[in-house]
Computed example of a mutant assay.
Amino acid sequence: MPVPWSTERRCTFIPDVAERGLQVRQLWDLTIFLKRLCKTKCLTRPAAVGEGEVGRWLEWQSLDLYDITDLVIKKYIPYHDLQWQMDESDPEVAKRYSWAELVCA
């Protein structure tokens, strides 16, 4: 599924954590992407949440930040790194950046 931000660049390192806030446009792009994922039924409730909820498709109105973090952000960042085939001496380094660093120019 296409993402609403550029995948042709690598993440930008922002050393000061206080400067890692998202702009309104970046939040809007994430919203569009999440709505697409919900509409195509790509997001399902994980097994650890509840017995009656397992495997149920998530709707846009029922998403919370835990769903967004666990089902989208934590899965997309390593996938993005695989596309770039990062050549790091420590493979865990590639997974230690924030969403803001991924989507900012």
Rank of each mutant, 00 (worst) to 15 (best):
W84Y: 14
D16V: 09
L102K: 11
E88S: 15
E19R: 07
I77W: 07
W28L: 10
D64V: 01
R36H: 04
G55I: 11
I77F: 09
V54T: 00
R45A: 09
L58Y: 02
S62L: 05
Q61E: 14
D67N: 07
R25H: 04
Y66P: 03
K35G: 07
E92H: 05
K39I: 04
G21N: 13
G50L: 12
W84N: 04
R9I: 08
A94Q: 10
Q26C: 00
D67E: 10
E19L: 12
F13G: 04
K75L: 09
V17K: 15
W84P: 10
L71W: 06
L27D: 06
T7L: 12
L102I: 03
K74V: 10
F33V: 06
C38N: 00
L37S: 07
G52R: 14
T12K: 11
V103N: 02
R9Q: 14
D90E: 15
R56C: 06
A100N: 13
P2L: 13
T12G: 14
W60L: 13
R96F: 12
K95A: 05
L37I: 07
K75H: 12
L37N: 01
Q85L: 03
E51F: 09
L22V: 09
A105S: 15
K35W: 13
L82W: 10
A18W: 02
V3K: 06
D67T: 00
L27A: 05
Q26M: 06
V72P: 00
C11H: 13
E8M: 03
L82K: 14
K74C: 13
L58T: 02
C38S: 01
W28I: 02
P78C: 04
Q61A: 03
E92W: 06
R10Y: 07
T40C: 10
P78Y: 12
D87G: 01
S6D: 14
R56W: 06
W99S: 05
E101D: 07
R96Q: 11
W99T: 08
E88V: 08
E59A: 09
T40N: 08
L30Y: 01
L22P: 00
D16E: 12
S98A: 06
D90P: 01
D29T: 02
L27C: 03
T44R: 04
W99H: 02
R10N: 12
W57Y: 15
C104I: 01
L71H: 01
I77Q: 08
D29I: 06
D87H: 14
L37D: 11
F33W: 04
E92G: 12
K39N: 15
K35N: 13
P15I: 00
T40S: 08
R56A: 08
R9L: 05
L71V: 00
R9A: 10
W57I: 15
W84V: 05
K74T: 12
T44L: 12
V24Y: 02
C104Q: 06
T31M: 11
K39Q: 07
S62G: 05
Q26S: 00
Y79V: 14
Y79D: 09
W99E: 03
W84E: 03
V103S: 07
P91C: 14
C42I: 09
R25Y: 04
K75F: 10
L34E: 13
P2G: 04
A94V: 11
A94P: 15
T31K: 08
R45H: 15
T12M: 12
Y97F: 11
G52T: 13
G50A: 12
T31I: 09
Q61K: 14
D81W: 14
F33D: 00
C11F: 07
I14M: 11
L65Y: 01
P4G: 07
Q26P: 00
C11P: 02
